[in-house]
Amino acid sequence: MQLYARRRVTNYLVVGLSLTATAFGLLFLVFVLGTLLKNGVGALGPTLFTQATPPPGSQGGLINAICGSLAMTLIATLVGTPTGILAGTFLAEYAHNSRLGEFVRFINDILLSAPSIIIGLFVYSVMVVPMGHFSAWAGSVALAIIMIPVIVRTTEDMLTLVPNTLREAAAALGAPKWKIVVTVTYRSAVQGMLTGVLLAVARISGETAPLLFTALNNQFWSSNLNAPMANLPVVIFQFAMSPYVDWQALAWAGALLITAAILFLNIGARLLASWSGLEK
């Protein structure tokens, strides 16, 4: 009887600890988001979207940083999406049990979790040093490199979910392989692939480390992609670390904007996946 009681108590204890751990994790999600809302909403204002980042001690907004981030994310997406999708297609459609496929998959998974600051160093030495200056191009390339492994992974996963019978049916009609992939496989996996792209965009929108040595920052409005460009993450970093209250308020506002955008993208991607019935 005593053994039974001891087992039961141990079990209650473990169940209790497990509950506590889950509550602990969720607490921080609520805590971080709550703080962001509290400090960010107060700093939101109409000038945020009309004025550029101010010098310390004066009013201003984040419009140059917002547009800079949008521009670099857009370019990175335009470069990263086709690259990632085609590489993912290779893994899913052409590389069954091939050595090259296994190797690419392995390396891709390493890149997926590699420290993003290392990617920043890499782009610094292959673009910034030869060009002689920091630029929005370099920032975009760094973001694209971070994006590619995410898209490769989701594309491969989504394409392997497409039933083989579809491919066989198309092949039986005499369609060449490339046409099968483009018109049959892609079409049935398009929602899943889009989910992957959305998640990749969400991943790069908050990336700061690779932009520090590539796009740098710019206090003024600039539409020149060949020059340093302001972007939200680096502005947040710089302003939050500063001793000026105005700057810190702007950092909170920027943090709220980025987080809202990223959560929106993430939830959108999940909805898209569940609509298309891909999520388990």
């Binding site: 086709p82 690259t83 990632g84 085609l86 590489a87 297609t89 290779f90 893994l91 459609e93 052409y94 590389a95 090259l100 496929g101 190797f103 690419v104 390396i107 891709n108 890149l111 590619i148 492994p149 490769v152 491919r167 066989e168 092949a171 005499g174 369609a175 060449p176 392989k177 490339w178 046409k179 099968i180 992939v181 483009v182």
Partner: peptide, 26 residues
């Protein structure tokens, strides 16, 4: 079996493209 009936330049180009981008990752 799918690969066998498929032929032509389109296939070679598409296959080549996917290999190129996969190698790009490496």
């Amino acid at each position: 079996a799918v690969r066998r009936p498929a032929g032509g330049a389109g296939d070679a180009i598409f296959h080549g493209l996917t290999v190129f981008f996969a190698v790009l990752v490496l």
